[in-house]
Design a binder for these strands. Structure first.
Lengths: 341, 341
DNA sequence: GCGATGGCCGTAAACGTTTACGGGTATCGG
DNA sequence: CCGATACCCGTAAACGTTTACGGCCATCGC
């Protein structure tokens, strides 16, 4: 069922049918309704390739997911919940969401370039932003709409939303330093990820204002998953003057850390203070309750959707500046940080 | 940069350029190489819409994700790990994977129909198969390639892979009945999901062969998530003659069940036996260790990719029957089932 | 030397839309 | 009654590919 066949059924030209279905003004209300009803009756749905080829618009936005740091994905419930909010936000503007997975080992920029010149989507949501992410200038230079989940070190104006790591680190570090901890182990994301820099900077700032010397041996960069959390926690606790507290900025890293501690005969929340990043299901399963931070991923997805839509041509006022938001996370006190010193 | 411009650079016709890039035979090796090199040099990548419009092929397969049962997705690490394997399997055949999220509240068949007539992908991976899933006959009747993750009650020949719930339930039930349990609470997936029927059937079969009467009050249908696990566990334990064992066929349901039990002053693995479905990160965080089942999601994704590719035109031998595989899950004994009766 | 064969390549017609453009009819003001 | 103005609608040219078809040239066998 083409537009041609539908037009023949209606005794109209395909041009008129197209205009009627696309809500353009050059068509009388009567025929518009007739066309819409006939389309529904015959189950006509425009072919996307033809439409895109001519108009250049696809009606979809892409969420780019790279499996490079697979621990950030593998078993990571963060994105799934986020995608739901994103889809809801996009639905309001009749946009579809497609998640594009970079092929194993494929470079992120190559992947993006491929899909951009293919013209698969109208706009992008970028995640896992690197410190100096080449995707940002690439898209900016071509004026392709996008919103980034995560800041970068790039000093150009674009839309982004990032978690408030400053707030998180501030809350966590005051909690620990005020409890008397002076040796605090930090597990930060991989050094290429931009968050990693922010986390370490805040860590040092907090130490300075508490008058505690900075020991680089206490800072590890690792993936966000369980097994890496276990490995790095083991290493940190094997130090001669081992830390009395652990700060784990990874999704399921605390699960591994608990296991590592117990293997050494140490109980989280009694012998060692532990603070995690997000209260995902895995962390909620821990006992004693993990002290960590929470956020509404559905809302975050919605905000990303709005931020992106504002950059799309047609939808935008063209004047307002791009969204640049630090997303609050609220501290959830559990038992795991309560270690008297 | 289109094919026309590239052809002009080379002094060739666009037809020849197209044939060279698509590895067709009607072109000399010398010019083929010349074309490929020029394309690489100028960064030419064929426009997907034009290509699809003419050839009908997209080079992508779609993974359909419905947010209907959002608890099956929300915070569910199952799919993320699966997608990685799927992408790896598809890469071997130069296929891209796109994940298509049904809009909130949109009917699954409507969603599928929309994307099929749009022609967004060459083939489909269906998940969350219903007992009588209308998507199956829809795709079969149109001879659109697909593979289903999950069986249905539909007696037609198509490619599917499903978890071996028969094996899982058999192992779990013998473990419990041989330990003397006679009142076993079951939390099965929502009744519309096909797995739910299988699980309940196996549950009854196991009871019969152990000579235990079937009590429908012990069977609950719920989502697979934490909060639902907590709610149903609470309900089951509030019964006058409450169960001595819980069997939870949901991803993170055991996390909620642990919490519910402890609120009642009951310790999993000591007062009540608990068995879960899969050893995801959340379940691995539980203490005492949850007795449950494990599988390699990467391998499963690969198998799905192969199963789908075999149904795609061109790749297939056309003769071999579609894959129909029960995927083994191996029992991982923890501490949570050890309750002496 | 000539017809046949096969390897390469150019030509042009699709694929299904959107959209600029122009034309036809009715309405309206004068 | 006439010209101008809207309002609709049809026409046709794109958009970027793929691919059936035909043609040219060289090679080959006789």
């Amino acid at each position: 069922m083409d537009i041609r066949e539908l037009a023949r059924h209606l005794g109209l030209s395909i041009g008129t049918v197209s205009r009627a279905l696309n809500d353009r003004k050059d068509v009388s209300p009567a025929t518009r309704q007739r066309v819409v009803e006939a389309a529904a009756k015959h189950g006509y749905i425009p072919n996307q390739s033809g439409r895109t080829l001519r108009s250049g618009r696809t009606g979809t936005v892409g969420f780019m997911l790279t499996l490079e740091h697979d621990s950030a994905i593998h078993g990571d419930p963060f994105f799934m919940a986020l995608l739901e909010g994103l889809q809801n936000g996009l639905s309001e503007h009749d946009l579809d969401l497609v998640v594009l997975l970079a092929r194993k080992g494929e470079d992120a920029l190559t992947f993006l370039r491929r899909h951009v010149s293919r013209g698969t989507v109208d706009g992008w949501v970028l995640s896992g932003t690197q410190h100096d992410d080449p995707r940002i200038p690439f898209l900016l230079d071509r004026t392709i709409p996008f919103v980034a989940l995560g800041r970068t070190a790039i000093a150009r104006d674009y839309a982004w939303i990032d978690l408030d790591f400053e707030g998180v680190m501030g809350d966590a570090m005051t909690l620990l330093t005020e409890a008397g901890h002076r040796r605090i182990g930090l597990v930060a994301p991989p050094a290429t990820i931009n968050n990693s820099h922010i986390v370490v900077r805040c860590y040092r700032d907090a130490l300075v204002s508490a008058g505690i010397p900075f020991d680089p041996a206490l800072v590890h960069h690792g993936e966000t998953d369980e097994s890496d959390g276990e490995a790095t926690a083991s290493e940190l606790m094997a130090m001669p003057d081992r830390p009395t507290a652990l700060l784990l900025m990874g999704e399921t890293a605390p699960v591994g850390a608990y296991r590592a501690l117990r293997r050494l005969g140490l109980e989280p929340g009694r012998d060692v203070a532990v603070i995690g990043l997000r209260d995902n299901p895995a962390c909620r399963a821990l006992s004693p309750d993990l002290t960590c931070f929470s956020l509404d991923l559905g809302d975050l997805g919605l905000a990303l959707a709005r931020g992106l839509v504002a950059t799309l041509p047609g939808h935008t006022k063209d004047t307002e500046p791009p969204v640049q938001t630090l997303w609050d996370m609220t501290l959830r006190l559990g038992q795991s940080h309560k270690v008297e010193r």
